[in-house]
Simulated scan of single mutants.
Amino acid sequence: MNVPSDTTPARRSRRSPDALRSEILDAASELFLRDGYANTSIDAVIEKVGGSKRAIYSHFGGKDDLFAAMVTGLSEQALQAIQRADERAGEDVRSSLVHFGRAIMRILMDARTIALYRLVVSECGRIPGLAEAFLQNGPGRATLALARLLETHARSGALAVPHPRDAAEHFIGMLRDDSHLEVVLGVRKPLGERAQRTRVEQVVDIFLHGVGPR
């Protein structure tokens, strides 16, 4: 009787469609972020995850669609760091805004998010709908989460915010200032934890009190 040796490659167990789709997305994300769109091929994804081209085409339709799905998936993963607005509504206004702002800053300064920004900017003119998908699943959802938090504080009388969505956009815009642009452009390193905290607290104080004389 032949006994398989320890060096015999183990057969890949049969995966469910959902598991295979998830593995394809994980492999594609790693390759796209590391090598860029042009240097990542469907064959490279298959080599990493196993399976066939037909599996990728059946799940995603092609390289552009796989890339768009990766952008959406990474945007959603990043936003998992932001707790639902009502989970922080019991805190005072400043504490809840500092907490939210720090979550946003960690996302903005994360290496994967920075790589994703660069990829979206470089490919959005070529792939229809890519920029819109990124905005809706990333920055757009962050803005809505903050708007809900501001509405909660407005209902309690702690804030006077006639237009929560606009105020949320302004708040996040202050966080995403020149430092974020400089990081995306590669002219400076991402802010460390201490610098992020300082920046967030400055933004919260300006947001709540403005810059006029006290």
Rank of each mutant, 00 (worst) to 15 (best):
D205N: 15
V98K: 06
V71K: 01
A167L: 07
G62E: 13
V49H: 01
N39R: 15
D86K: 14
T8R: 13
I104N: 04
D35Q: 14
S13W: 03
Q136F: 05
R197H: 12
L79I: 08
D26K: 03
T152F: 10
L159F: 06
G192A: 12
Q83D: 15
S41W: 02
T72Y: 07
D64I: 01
R141Y: 10
P139Y: 04
R176I: 07
A81D: 12
V71N: 00
R141M: 09
H153W: 11
A158H: 06
L135I: 05
T152Y: 09
E193R: 12
Q196Y: 10
R21H: 12
A44D: 14
P164E: 07
N137C: 14
I42S: 05
T8Q: 13
R15I: 05
E76T: 15
L208K: 09
V200S: 05
P162H: 10
E23A: 13
D166L: 07
T72G: 07
R14Y: 02
Q202R: 06
K48T: 13
Q77G: 08
A133C: 05
A133W: 01
Q83L: 15
D92A: 08
E47C: 09
R176Y: 04
G61W: 02
M109P: 00
A44E: 08
A19H: 11
E30F: 08
V49E: 01
L135M: 14
A28L: 04
M105I: 06
E47P: 00
S95D: 15
M109I: 03
D166N: 05
T152K: 05
G51E: 12
H163M: 06
A89L: 14
A111V: 13
T113Q: 14
V211F: 06
Q83M: 09
V93A: 08
H180Y: 11
I82F: 03
T8H: 08
E201H: 11
I42D: 09
S22H: 12
K63G: 00
L144E: 02
L159D: 08
A85V: 04
A103G: 12
